[in-house]
Design a binder for these strands. Structure first.
Lengths: 135, 135
DNA sequence: GGAGATTTATTTGTGTACAAACAAACGACC
DNA sequence: GGTCGTTTGTTTGTACACAAATAAATCTCC
């Protein structure tokens, strides 16, 4: 018998909502989970095109446009044009962006730890490995 | 060293996106995952208030209002007022809604099976049990 | 150097997701 | 029956999430 509560898609939504709650509880830089991901990824990459950033953070071109716009408005990134290709918008961190990266890493680790709190260390490893196979 | 690709929140987003892709690939009634959940839940409950439906599908009051509006526009549900409490909007299935429920159950099962395809039967059980503990 | 395919980005539209403000209705208490 | 707290629902606003249409720019081929 079909039960909504046992469907992986439905449970994924509930788990994501709880993760969002944990994220918002800890958040103090006014960033959303999506903005956080984009910012952390720009820091990893040093600077990159908007399109590549979207692809490296699993965001649609329209979505990353909005996220980058808001990160710029918040002063964490600055935009430029690629001298070698006028189509490209180059995204890089501002000084302010650089300053908060270490704090974002700590914050992100705390969110992950609290989200995974119901699982022990061995379970976390198994769970993340399986979840990753579903992506 | 902090890695975005290893954070549970980020991986949950990727898994949800893949699930959405699987859902859209199979979908032929023009329903979104959220509308599907709401419709299947109304069928389970026989009829219920909009507020209860929202709570039983983990949707905010503003969100369930929109979802119910669209399900009504698509002809799957009808709305009424609770004679015992004028505040309440009662949501129930139309004939059309009743007609598609068996099909929705099959479709939902297919989506779940395909989403979980990278895991074997034993792994699925373990995974769903752990995922449920994170909700 | 012109044509055509592809890439990058913007814009518009639809559908969530949720916070917050607001209003009608209900029930408990006096 | 009036007050107050709570419940249910609507509306507005912000932030995604993504499809589709559009345009500028690039690259390849002729």
């Amino acid at each position: 018998m079909y039960k909504l509560d046992e469907q992986v898609g439905y449970i994924l939504r509930l788990a994501s909502q709880r993760h969002a709650t944990v994220f918002n509880k800890h958040s103090d830089l006014g960033l959303t989970p999506t903005q956080f991901s984009a910012l952390v990824r720009v820091a990893e990459m040093g600077s990159c095109s908007q399109n590549l950033l979207g692809r490296r953070t699993a965001m649609d071109v329209a979505t990353i446009k909005g996220v980058v716009t808001r990160l710029k408005a918040k002063g964490f990134v600055e935009l430029g044009t690629d001298p070698g290709d006028k189509r490209r918008t180059v995204v890089s961190l501002t000084d302010k962006g650089h300053e908060v990266i270490a704090q974002l890493h700590s914050f992100g680790q705390a969110v992950t730890d609290e989200t995974l709190a119901p699982l022990n260390t061995a379970e976390r490893k198994v769970f993340l490995e399986m979840l990753t196979r579903l992506t």
